[in-house]
Amino acid sequence: MDLSLSTRTEGDRTVVTVGGEIDVYTAPKLREQLIDLVSSGNYHLVVDMENVDFLDSTGLGVLVGGLKRVRAHEGSLRLVCTQERILKIFRITGLTKVFPIHATVDEALAATD
């Protein structure tokens, strides 16, 4: 199982749809994607993880890296995830307090704060 990535623009936000497995082998692909987006001026990202089958701490590191990058431009990085097994990893590491996590892409797009 590999990692699939696609991006689309919704107003001033960019939705990154991630599918498959995020591990030490595939995470660099996601890291590059996030870096490319921020480098080209996309500072408000929504990462849709509903189709992610596996996430480990390497993937968490990439998401935290992305969050730091967008915050340097006063941007945002929101996650969409309802899968309990993925959310568990965020809870264990305390990252549920760091990332806004939404149930749907629409909810993430509508969120302001």
Binding site: D56, S57, T58, G61, I92, T93
Partner: peptide, 11 residues
């Protein structure tokens, strides 16, 4: 003192 060890030891 890493995410990796935190996840490993929790699971």
């Amino acid at each position: 003192d890493t995410f990796a060890w935190t996840v490993l030891s929790a699971l």
